[in-house]
């Protein structure tokens, strides 16, 4: 498949292979459309990076997919289901985890409560936490600490742990690498690729940090002024050239 293939997903794949599919998606705030005509197809089981500069609509895109912003036009499918117009909690409960960039934890709740909230009583916390505790050893000792008192890096670990706790089929992550020390970035990278590899979780990363994104992702897309303007495989030779052309100018 060629690199700068513009908004034209291949038709050969069957719907059951697709984790996330956006067609002609439009949304925004007030009188302004931030996302215009976004088309995207993310296959199951991979890690997909959406790259873009500040203000290109990366966060808005994720919020729209999550139902936190209304879809003004077009449609969104997740795991084969048309989720257009669904309330957020329904989208979450069909197997989606969302890691927001800002105000992403409940500062006044303790670590354990922050994690339990994501389960909503739908699964045993003890069991589920045991399944991921190995990836996040620091959280296990701090279940009773108030989340707002964790360091920035620990808070990011909490976000990832919470996202994985529900055994999601799809995780949407908004700029997890921002402001992180390299050691923690490495830790986050390890946890995510582990999830993808061991559990077959599909991960969609929204990033400015190309190095972090390319280290994880197998495919990428470039979001510019609310549209996907380029798409391709991160391993290809053209990828670096395409990304630097779109992101550095």
């Amino acid at each position: 498949m060629s690199t700068s293939q513009k908004s034209a997903p291949a038709k050969a794949e069957t719907a059951s292979d697709i984790a996330l599919c956006l067609r002609g998606l439009r949304s925004g705030y007030g009188g302004i459309d931030v996302i215009r005509e976004a088309n995207l197809e993310v296959r199951k089981g991979g890690i997909y990076a959406i790259l873009g500069k500040n203000g290109m609509g990366k966060t808005t895109l994720l919020k729209t997919i999550m139902g936190l912003l209304p879809i003004r036009d077009g449609s969104a499918h997740i795991l084969g289901a048309d989720i257009t117009g669904w309330p957020t909690y329904r989208i979450v409960r069909c197997g989606v985890s969302y890691v927001p960039q800002e105000q992403a934890i409940f500062q006044d709740l303790n670590v354990g409560e922050n994690l339990r909230i994501a389960l909503g009583g739908r699964a045993s916390f003890k069991e589920r936490f045991a399944g991921i505790a190995g990836l996040f050893p620091v959280l296990g000792q701090r279940l009773h600490q108030v989340a707002g008192t964790l360091s920035g890096g620990e808070q990011k670990m909490l976000l990832l742990a919470r996202a994985l706790l529900t055994n999601p089929k799809l995780i949407l992550i908004d700029e997890i690498s921002e402001g992180l020390q390299p050691a923690i970035v490495g830790h986050a990278q390890a946890a995510l690729s582990n999830a993808c590899r061991e559990r077959g979780t599909t991960i969609v990363l929204v990033e400015q940090n190309v190095r972090f994104a390319f280290a994880l992702a197998d495919r990428y897309a470039i979001l510019n002024l609310g549209e996907i303007i380029a798409e391709g495989e991160t391993g290809s030779d053209e990828a670096i050239e395409s990304v630097s052309r779109h992101l550095t100018l």
């Binding site: 936190l68 309330p87 957020t88 909690y89 409940f106 709740l109 909230i117 909503g120």
Partner: peptide, 25 residues
């Protein structure tokens, strides 16, 4: 209780509570 935890989550940050799968309605 779970419901109480959900209520506290809604009190603190309703948008995030929704994103955690809480039926805030």
């Amino acid at each position: 209780t779970e419901l109480g935890l959900s209520a506290r989550a809604v009190i603190m940050n309703e948008g995030l509570a929704q994103a955690m799968g809480i039926n805030t309605r």
